[in-house]
């Protein structure tokens, strides 16, 4: 038998759209933080924490490099939008040092590869290393100016 559906109000629809939108936003956040280990036994690397910020003029990348030998810190532009940060650790770490006995491997390096969210000039980067925090600043590439009529 035909059952008359209650007409949904604009508020119900809006609330449904918002819920859907929030679920999508959550999924996007989850995918940004990929579920993979923060270590790699093949390359003997621990992945340091790293963040990318975009300002109107610059892209600023920071990385926390505890236990890094200051002189060994290296920043390399692998491509126009991919940077590699590496550093040798002052002291090797093993899984044992983390109390983990069911895995084997040791780590001598810190390495991460942040990606640029917008075009930058990688040749003009400025690097500083203070308090164990590496900071790299890249000027953003400018487009063309649009005349205001």
């Amino acid at each position: 038998m035909y059952k008359k559906r209650r007409k949904r109000s604009i508020f119900d629809l809006m609330s449904e759209y918002m819920e859907e939108f929030e679920t999508l936003a959550d999924e996007l956040i989850e995918s940004t933080f990929a579920e993979r280990p923060s270590w790699n036994t093949e390359s003997c690397c621990l992945e340091p924490l790293c963040n990318v910020f975009v300002t109107p003029d610059e892209v600023v990348i920071t990385a926390d490099l505890p236990n890094a030998e200051h002189e060994s810190v290296k920043v390399e532009a692998l491509s126009e939008d991919l940077i590699e940060i590496t550093a040798k650790m002052k002291r090797k770490m093993r899984f044992d040092d983390f109390g983990i006995t069911h895995r084997e491997g040791e780590f001598s390096f810190l390495r991460c590869q942040p990606r640029m969210p917008v075009p930058v000039d990688t040749k003009r980067m400025k690097i500083s290393f203070k308090h164990g925090i590496l900071e790299i600043r890249f000027p953003r590439k400018r487009g063309h100016e649009i005349q205001v009529e």
Binding site: S38, L46, P66
Partner: peptide
């Protein structure tokens, strides 16, 4: 301090 910073990476993330 440095050891804690290394060990706290995952929970920080």
């Amino acid at each position: 301090g440095e050891e804690i910073r290394l060990k706290a990476r995952d929970i920080m993330k």
